[in-house]
């Protein structure tokens, strides 16, 4: 079911990010709704489903960007791997850890995409990326993650009635 849900949810998120989120820029940065959805969904979703979400979300984002197709997927995949590795070793995933995952995932995503952009000739200086992209995005993700996580968790508990994470 999570596979089917990914398409409308991520397309809508990408569309929102391409339109309304542009109005919420602070110091040049805006929230990455697709990244938030993919990472938060991936925490409790099966690996294959998380990878699928990463592909759908990343490609959708890249279709609305100058960045080459798949660039956004790369960072998400790396983060999903890290999340899954940590989730297996941890007995319980609390909200702080979720926030940590998201912030780390944001840093990785921005780093990877800007590296690819730099290869493509659209690079910014690391200082500018940190100040004008990373810091505002981290702030937004910290603000937005909790309500989104609650919604996602509620949906996943309906989709996967068994307690714990399906791996």
């Amino acid at each position: 079911m999570g596979y089917y849900l990914s398409l409308p949810a991520l397309i809508l998120a990408a569309a929102l990010q391409s339109s309304l989120m542009g109005q919420l820029r602070i110091a040049g940065g805006a929230p990455d709704l697709v990244l938030i959805l993919v990472l938060l969904w991936s925490i409790h979703a099966p690996l294959n489903e998380a990878i699928f979400w990463a592909f759908v979300g990343g490609i959708t984002l890249d279709l609305l960007s100058v960045i080459p197709l798949g660039s956004s997927v790369m960072g998400m995949l790396i983060m999903i791997y890290l999340i899954k590795r940590l989730s297996v070793q941890l007995f319980h995933i609390n909200i702080v850890l979720v926030a940590g995952f998201l912030l780390l995932g944001t840093v990785i995503q921005i780093t990877v995409t800007h590296l690819i952009l730099a290869f493509r000739g659209f690079g910014l200086s690391p200082g500018d990326v940190f100040q004008y992209v990373m810091l505002p995005e981290l702030f937004y993700h910290l603000v937005l993650f909790l309500p989104i996580y609650i919604v996602i968790r509620g949906l996943q508990q309906r989709l996967y009635p068994e307690p714990g994470t399906r791996l």
Binding site: I51, G70, V73, M74, I80, Y81
Partner: peptide
């Protein structure tokens, strides 16, 4: 079990990253 998952997950991730890299290359 955990080792099998790890090998599976690494394999899946590896394949996904290769697919992703091909995608980026083709798109570029």
């Amino acid at each position: 079990m955990r080792r099998r998952w790890r090998s599976n997950s690494i394999g899946i991730l590896f394949l996904s990253l290769i697919a992703c890299a091909v995608l980026i290359a083709l798109s570029a």
